[in-house]
Write a protein that binds this DNA or RNA. Sequence first.
DNA 1: GATCGCCTCCCCCGTGCGGGGGAGGTCCGT
DNA 2: ACGGACCTCCCCCGCACGGGGGAGGCGATC
Lengths: 220, 220
Amino acid sequence: MPVTVLLVDDEPLVRAGLRAVLEAQPDIEVVGEAADGAAVIPLVRRLRPDVVAMDVRMPLLDGIEATRALLRTVDEPPRILVVTTFENDEYVYEALRAGADGFLLKRARPAEIVHAVRLIAEGESLLFPASVRQLAAEYGDDGGNRAARAVMERAQLTEREAEVLRLMARGLSNAEIAARLVVGTETVKSHVSAVLAKLGARDRTQAVIAAYESGFVAPG
Amino acid sequence: MPVTVLLVDDEPLVRAGLRAVLEAQPDIEVVGEAADGAAVIPLVRRLRPDVVAMDVRMPLLDGIEATRALLRTVDEPPRILVVTTFENDEYVYEALRAGADGFLLKRARPAEIVHAVRLIAEGESLLFPASVRQLAAEYGDDGGNRAARAVMERAQLTEREAEVLRLMARGLSNAEIAARLVVGTETVKSHVSAVLAKLGARDRTQAVIAAYESGFVAPG
DNA sequence: GATCGCCTCCCCCGTGCGGGGGAGGTCCGT
DNA sequence: ACGGACCTCCCCCGCACGGGGGAGGCGATC
C-alpha cells in the first residue's frame, strides 16, 4: 500500500510543486489538498492520510493550531510534516512542540522531500534534518536553533542511545564506546544508527552538533 | 638527529617512567632531568633540548613560572610540553597561556606520550589532544574545558582553516565544503587535516567538539 | 501466553574519511 | 632574489563508519 499524503498550503503553486514531486514516486500518493488549516480536519477524517504535509504560515488557521486541533480531535491522527520557508522559523518550533513529527524546508531538493515523507510515514521523527543545517550554512544563516531545542524532547532516545550520544559528543569512536560500555562494536553501531535516524543526522558529526545545539550536552 | 628531551618533574618515579618510555624510541633521547623549575633554565642553556617535558605542579618554581622564565630569558627556547595529572587542571590552562606548546596527561598510554613528544618537536601545537578528552570521558570527568578555551587562541588556524572548521561544525561533509568554497575535495581534505593536526583532534567529530568547547562556534 | 520495546550481536558492502607523501601557484617580507 | 606561509590539487592506502538487512534474549505490559 502506498503512502497517502494530504497537502495543506495556501499557495497553489507550492501544492502543485509538492504534488509533482511526490506523485513521481510509485509508493507515494497525494490523496487531497487543502488551502487552509480550517479545512484540514474534515479532510483528514474523510481521507485518512498517512502524512499531512502542512505549511506553518497560513491565513485563518495556521499550521500550529491545525496540528493541535488534529491531534486533539482525530483518533489515530496522521503523521504531520511541517513545511516552512525559513530555516529559523519559530512557528516551526511551536509546531514541533504542538506535536508535529518533522519539518521540511520548501527549498529542499526533491529527493530530500521524498525522503522526508517516507521517513515520517514509517514513524520516524525527522526533527533535525541534515538539510536544514546544510541549507542554513549555505545561506549563512544561523540555522534552526530554537527548533533544535525541541529535538531531544521529541527524539525519544532510549537510555542506552542517550548514553551513546553522550560518549559520541566526547569524541569517542565506536570501538572506544564499545570498550567503555563493555559491549561489542556491532552493538554500538546499532545504537549509533538509531541515534542518527532519530535525530535526522547523516553522520556522527551532525549528531554531536545536534547534541550541542539542543543543549543535550553543554560546552564549558 | 634524534629529538632531545629534558624532563622536569619533582617525582623521580615520573621521571623514570618518562625516560623509560621515551628512550625506548630510537629517535628520541633524554638528555637531562630536573626536579624543580628553578633548575630548568641553566640546564636548558647547557643542554639545548628540543623539548622540555615539564610538570605543572612543582614546589619552589612551578611549570607556569618556569615556562614564562624560559621563554623570556632563553633565545631559541625549546618547545614545552606540559605534563599534568588532572585533565581539568587550571594550571595547565595558565601554562598554555604562558606559552607552552601542548599538554599531556600522565596516565596517557606510552604510544601517546611518544606521539606527543614527536609532534611537539616537529613544531606542531598539541593543544587539544584526543587523549585528554578520551581519558576525561573514561573517568567521567568533564574534561579540559578551560584549557580548551585556550586552544583556538594558540592553534593559529589560518583563515581558510577556520572557515573550513566553521563549516565542519555545521555538519557539512568534505564534498559539501568543497562545493561551498568552490575548490576541490582534495583541497578541503588538506585543510581538514591541518585543522585536525593543529587541534590535536583525531577526526572531524573531535574537531567540532573542540570548536564548541572553546567557544569557536557557539550553540544557540 | 503473547506482544512489544529494548539491548545485544551478526552479516555484507560501499565509501567517506584521514594519514602520508608530494608539488605548483601566489603573495609577502627581507 | 630568495625563503616562507598559504592555498590549491594530486597520488596511494587502510579503515572506521554508516546503510541495510536479520536474529535472539529479556523484561514489562496486556
